[in-house]
C-alpha cells in the first residue's frame, strides 16, 4: 500500500520512516556510492528536517518499504539547488507553487535482482502513480527530480514522461536533473501502464507457482 507521511502523522509511522531511511542508506550509499551522510544505518540530510512529504510504498502491514520518495516545494529550499547550482544555474532556480522537487526516489534492492524485472517495474509505476495522485490533488503541475542513468532508462522503459534539463558529474556517475509534467492525461497513462503491468505480474506469478 501507499502511505503519505508528513510531520503531522510521522509519529504514527515512525518504524516505517526509519525503514525508509535505512533503505535510502543501502541504495544511495552502498549501491550508488553517492556522497551521503549515514548515521546508525540511516541516510538523512538537511532536507529531511524541512517537513518534506514522503510517499512510501510498503507491504500491507506497513513494515517493509518497497520504495519511497521525498517531495519539497520549489518555493522553499531545494536539494537540486545544492547539487546542480554550478552546472544548471537556470533549471535549479525554477520556483513556483506548482513546481515541486522529488528526491531520493528509490526501490527496495530486493526488487533490483535480475529475476524480479516485472515486480520492479510494477513497484516503480505504483510509486509514480501515487506521486501523480498527490501532485494532482495539491495543484502541482511539474516535478523536478534528480536521478542516475539507470533510473533514466527505467523511466523511459515504463513510459514515464521526463525531460532532461541537464546533468552534473559531481558524483561517481552522471546525475541528471529532469522535469516530469503532471496532468490528468499523464497520470491516466501511468494508471493504464500500471494496469497492464499488474496483469503481467499476475500471469508470471501464476506460472511461477
Amino acid at each position: 500500500m501507499i502511505i503519505v507521511v508528513e510531520s503531522h502523522n510521522a509519529h504514527k509511522y515512525s518504524n516505517l520512516v526509519d525503514e525508509m531511511f535505512r533503505l535510502r542508506a543501502r541504495i544511495f550509499r552502498d549501491r550508488l556510492h553517492w556522497d551521503v551522510q549515514v548515521t546508525d544505518g540511516q541516510e538523512r540530510d538537511n532536507y529531511d528536517d524541512l517537513h518534506p512529504v514522503y510517499i512510501i510504498y510498503c507491504d500491507d502491514s506497513a513494515t517493509e518499504v518497497k520504495g519511497s520518495l521525498r517531495l519539497l516545494p520549489t518555493t522553499g529550499p531545494t536539494l537540486s539547488r545544492d547539487v546542480f547550482y554550478d552546472t544548471l544555474p537556470d533549471a535549479v532556480h525554477l520556483c513556483a507553487p506548482t513546481i515541486w522537487e522529488c528526491t531520493r526516489f528509490c526501490l527496495d534492492e530486493k526488487l533490483l535482482d535480475k529475476g524480479k524485472q516485472n515486480e520492479m517495474l510494477f513497484a516503480c509505476l505504483v510509486l509514480l502513480e501515487a506521486l501523480g495522485n498527490v501532485a494532482l490533488r495539491a495543484g502541482i503541475e511539474s516535478i523536478i527530480g534528480n536521478f542516475d542513468t539507470a533510473m533514466l532508462r527505467l523511466y523511459r522503459r515504463i513510459g514515464c514522461e521526463v525531460e532532461i534539463l541537464g546533468s552534473t558529474l559531481r558524483f561517481a556517475e552522471p546525475i541528471y536533473l529532469g522535469l516530469h509534467p503532471i496532468s490528468e492525461p499523464v497520470i491516466r497513462r501511468i494508471k493504464a501502464r500500471l494496469h497492464k503491468r499488474s496483469l503481467l505480474l499476475d500471469a508470471t506469478q501464476k506460472v511461477a507457482a
Binding site: T75, H93, A96, P97, I99, E141, S142, E163, L165, P181
Partner: peptide, 17 residues
C-alpha cells in the same frame, strides 16, 4: 529547443518571481 511544457514552466517561474 526545449519542450513546450518546460518553456511554460520557465515563464511560470518568472511570473511567480
Amino acid at each position: 529547443q526545449i519542450s513546450p511544457h518546460t518553456s511554460r514552466e520557465y515563464l511560470k517561474s518568472a511570473r511567480h518571481k
